[in-house]
Design a protein around this nucleic acid. Structure first.
Lengths: 168, 168
DNA sequence: CTGAACTTTCAAAATTTATTGAAAATAATT
DNA sequence: AATTATTTTCAATAAATTTTGAAAGTTCAG
């Protein structure tokens, strides 16, 4: 397979994959493009390669930056801004985990804490089921929180496969 | 907080949470409703409680069934079908992991395998970056695959917290 | 300061995704 | 086999999300 074709395929699939995970297709595609670009590129490069508008590139790049997956690069002597993505894929993964934990898991746990104490008779079947369910989801959430922390900290070993031994 | 209000809050937040993960809001809400319903309920119950149409309930319930999170229950002497959700939240979590792995991770790994060998000079910067990136994403994917398998099999211990010790 | 180069914003338009509801299909009852 | 209850389908519609592009904002060289 030719590079151009493979790249195209990768970007498009990465976009589709992203949408399944609640990530804007274009944002995922820009990320994919940056991942396979050895050097920093400009907004115009992205516009051209993905055939999307300037506004779209700008908004999604800013979003990627807020996820700490992409950064602005100022090349000396150049007027334009360049962008580059973190290339260490394990760092990418842990960063995404970290952010989603912060943005989604933490708020959810906070909510569950609030819902935990409803007034009413614990003997009532409906109340009992509700309280128990909230409690066990909260417990699962806290568990996930800890497991993910361990994962994030295991950073160094993943590539060699030594994490899994510890893990098991 | 009153039960009705708490339930409402839970269902609505679970729906919002779902959308962030690429899950249809209504599907997540139906799931939430079933999770806190001690007894099986009918399509009409769901329509009424969530104010949604019959067709919508039907499609989303079928989807939930395909994820093995909900099942049909036939009550003796009743004409209508009833539905109930798996209440063991760990089983719910592992089932979701299992399905997403199968539906998303596996196809992605398959694709990456295909993209791995592009023709062209490995000395070329673009080609080199592409091949390396695809390779390391594939490695990460395979790693995740194994880690998730270990997690799924650890089923029995999660509630007591003993998994994490082993994990660490 | 001025003007050119570049970036950001955001209302309107386009696209994608979800929902409705009525008709068709299916299943149970008499 | 006809009637009734219930479920399923799916084209049309509605809602949500994404994208555009032009105007406003910013930055910087001269």
């Amino acid at each position: 397979m030719k590079l151009t074709e493979a790249k195209q395929q990768f970007i498009s699939s990465w976009g589709a994959f992203g949408t399944q995970w609640g990530i804007n297709r274009t944002m995922a595609q820009i990320h994919a493009l940056l991942l396979v670009s050895p050097d920093p590129i400009t907004q115009d490069d992205i516009m051209e390669q993905l055939s999307i508008s300037r506004g779209n590139v700008n908004m999604n790049i800013r979003d990627l930056i807020s996820w700490n997956l992409v950064e602005r690069v100022i090349l000396p002597g150049e007027r334009k801004e360049y962008f580059t993505a973190e290339k260490d894929i394990w760092k990418v993964a842990t960063q995404i985990i970290r952010e989603r934990k912060k943005r989604e898991l933490d708020p959810m746990l906070k909510l569950l804490g609030q819902l935990e104490d409803v007034d009413g008779d614990k003997k009532d079947k409906e109340t009992k089921q509700f309280v128990e369910m909230i409690g066990s989801i909260k417990k699962l959430g806290n568990h996930a929180d800890k497991v993910l922390d361990v994962l994030i900290k295991a950073e160094e070993n993943w590539f060699t496969g030594s994490l899994l031994k510890v893990f098991k």
